[in-house]
């Protein structure tokens, strides 16, 4: 009897789903090894099929995407009940991801922004005897572990095939890692960065630059060139894919296990290397970070200490 696994996507861009497909031919091994019982994007299983399964009958269910509305909450709870192991797959499930940036506003703010002066969606709509209901649109996006108990996390946006492979290996392997482990190396990205040896003796920046303002040199460390690369604060594992594409890391693998709030730590690091003790000059340099929340909390706003913006 092949172990049953389930895949589901909540507030997600679908990238993580494709990531699974990215396993290329290895997807076949997976398919052989497991019996996928629920994968809405690829297989036509319905909710009621899952409800019909006995609890714990699914070995592992990989849930990606943050919790945005009540529907996603419901299914997350459902899968938790049905599965022995729930894996938060991808940074949205782990920390809230890009959708989590919605916490800079609330439901009302978002509807006002999206539907401006058009028709705003209504929860329940009755039309000649039929009713149509929409799930409740929460004010705040939360990560998966805020609503259900999560066993393991697979970081990344999306997780790289290697990370996914290793994760599956670990899960299918004999000794399971301790509950709550993030299935990726526990050091910062700089460890794997090809430009590791080009870092200066004293890393101090007189200037910070935005990505679009400059064409970075291909060899030397991007942070040393004044770009706000968050590699030092971000967990390794992606083998510095972005940096190989000559773009600074934006922190999608989340913090290392010892860091509670990714944004605060990244801010502290970047602020500390500004080479000036004069308030005016520091302020001038900081003009190159117009959106601190967007920069430091790009993927982890919901799981940050403050969680969301305080609305008046």
């Amino acid at each position: 009897m092949k172990p049953k696994v389930a895949f589901y996507w909540c507030a997600s861009c679908g990238g993580c789903e494709e990531a699974v497909v990215d396993l290329d031919e290895k997807i076949l091994d997976v398919a052989n090894a497991v019996d996928i019982v629920f994968w809405p994007v690829a297989l036509d299983f319905k909710e009621h099929d899952v409800e019909a399964m006995p609890d714990g009958s699914i070995l592992a269910s990989f849930i990606n995407g943050a919790i945005r509305n009540s529907d996603q909450l419901k299914i997350a709870k459902l899968l938790r009940a049905k599965s022995q192991v729930v894996v938060a797959f991808g940074v949205c499930a782990q920390l809230g991801g890009i959708p989590g940036l919605a916490n800079m506003s609330d439901a009302k703010g978002i509807f006002a922004e999206v539907y401006r002066d058009g028709v705003a969606p209504v929860r329940l709509h009755r039309e000649n005897g039929h009713s149509l209901s929409l799930p409740e649109f929460f004010d705040t996006v939360v990560a998966l572990d805020r609503v259900i108990d999560v066993d393991y996390y697979v970081p990344g946006c999306p997780p790289t095939p290697k990370i996914i492979g290793d994760a599956l290996g670990a899960l299918l392997g004999s000794n399971l890692p301790p509950k709550g482990t993030v299935l990726a190396p526990d050091q910062a990205l700089c460890e794997q960065c090809p430009r590791k040896d080009t870092r200066p003796e004293k890393l101090l920046l007189k200037e910070l630059k935005r990505v679009h303002q400059v064409v970075a040199d291909q060899q030397t460390c991007l942070l040393a060139q004044g770009l706000a690369c968050l590699g030092p604060a971000t967990r390794a594992g992606c083998e510095a894919m972005c940096i190989r594409g000559n773009m600074p890391c934006t922190g999608c693998f989340g913090p290392t296990s010892r860091v509670r709030d990714f944004g605060a730590k990244a801010l502290s690091a970047i602020a500390s290397v500004i080479d000036s003790n004069d308030e005016g000059e520091i302020t001038r340099i900081l003009e190159a970070l117009p959106d601190p929340v967007g920069t430091f909390y790009r993927y982890s706003l919901p799981s940050s200490l403050l969680g969301r913006r305080r609305m008046e």
């Binding site: 526990d186 910062a188 460890e191 040896d197 870092r199 003796e201 890393l203 690091a269 500390s272 080479d275």
Partner: peptide, 26 residues
């Protein structure tokens, strides 16, 4: 050391140059 990524952010901050970079172990 098992967690240090050798990112060198700290070395510039120490006025007493107490922090040094070990090249072999990076």
């Amino acid at each position: 050391e098992e967690y240090c990524s050798g990112c060198r952010v700290c070395s510039a901050l120490c006025p007493y140059s107490a922090i040094s970079y070990v090249a072999e172990r990076k």
